[in-house]
Simulated scan of single mutants.
Amino acid sequence: MALKLSLKPDEKLVINGAVVANGERRATLIVHNKASILREKDIMQEDEVSTPARRIYFPVMLMYMDNSATNKYYDEFVLRMTEFMSAITTPSAIELCVSISREVMDRNYYKALINCKKLMKFETERLNGST
């Protein structure tokens, strides 16, 4: 099944490591084969890695974007996930961490990124005092 992407004017995305920018008008891309694709809003810059959950997201994102160097980023992921899991006790967060780890082990990096975003939301709620 093809992936259909609607791009806003000037929106950027990364496809298999190549940065692609849309022109001045809205455009639609259809990707017919498997590719590593991240929209600009999902790309985290190194200077944005400022919380424990973001320290998990970042190496997973790099594994997804650079399949040839996954081993390079895997050790960082394991370290950051271990640190995070040793500091939390909330069952739903632990379940998310286990799910992320399982997806990374299965090389389902995009699914892991989706769960990392949920983990970042959990972290933000905790830091802001919400439950």
Score class of each variant (00 low, 15 high):
66 D>R: 05
95 E>R: 09
10 D>G: 11
57 Y>F: 11
22 N>K: 08
46 E>A: 12
78 V>M: 03
8 K>Y: 07
21 A>W: 00
10 D>S: 14
35 A>M: 02
85 M>K: 15
36 S>C: 06
114 I>H: 00
110 Y>C: 02
15 I>S: 00
9 P>L: 14
76 E>K: 10
40 E>Y: 01
20 V>A: 01
83 E>F: 15
55 R>C: 13
63 M>H: 05
38 L>E: 02
4 K>L: 15
66 D>V: 06
45 Q>W: 08
35 A>I: 01
41 K>T: 07
15 I>Q: 03
45 Q>A: 09
126 R>N: 14
79 L>R: 13
50 S>T: 14
38 L>I: 05
46 E>Y: 13
67 N>G: 05
89 T>C: 00
59 P>I: 00
88 I>K: 15
36 S>A: 13
6 S>E: 15
108 N>A: 04
57 Y>K: 05
27 A>R: 13
123 E>F: 04
25 R>G: 15
73 Y>K: 02
105 M>G: 07
122 F>S: 01
82 T>F: 09
3 L>N: 06
55 R>F: 11
21 A>D: 04
122 F>L: 05
103 E>L: 04
1 M>A: 11
78 V>C: 02
51 T>A: 03
40 E>N: 05
23 G>S: 06
108 N>S: 10
115 N>Y: 12
107 R>C: 08
129 G>M: 07
131 T>N: 12
43 I>Q: 03
68 S>A: 14
44 M>S: 09
44 M>R: 11
115 N>T: 00
63 M>C: 08
120 M>R: 11
96 L>V: 11
115 N>L: 09
31 V>W: 02
119 L>W: 06
86 S>M: 12
130 S>F: 10
95 E>S: 12
59 P>E: 00
127 L>G: 00
79 L>S: 13
105 M>R: 03
77 F>E: 05
54 R>Y: 07
97 C>I: 03
73 Y>V: 04
8 K>P: 03
29 L>M: 10
5 L>W: 03
69 A>Q: 11
122 F>I: 05
61 M>C: 06
119 L>G: 11
66 D>K: 07
94 I>L: 14
69 A>D: 12
46 E>P: 15
110 Y>E: 04
65 M>E: 13
29 L>R: 10
128 N>F: 10
25 R>S: 15
107 R>G: 00
19 V>S: 08
37 I>H: 02
66 D>H: 08
33 N>E: 04
12 K>I: 14
35 A>E: 00
67 N>Q: 02
91 P>N: 00
34 K>N: 07
76 E>M: 11
92 S>R: 13
111 K>G: 04
126 R>M: 13
65 M>T: 09
123 E>V: 07
97 C>E: 03
40 E>S: 04
129 G>I: 07
50 S>P: 13
28 T>Q: 06
116 C>Y: 05
102 R>S: 06
36 S>E: 02
15 I>A: 04
40 E>A: 01
26 R>Y: 07
68 S>D: 13
46 E>S: 14
22 N>E: 05
16 N>D: 08
68 S>G: 08
85 M>I: 15
72 K>P: 12
11 E>Q: 13
78 V>P: 10
90 T>D: 14
64 Y>D: 00
23 G>A: 04
109 Y>V: 01
96 L>T: 14
105 M>E: 03
31 V>T: 05
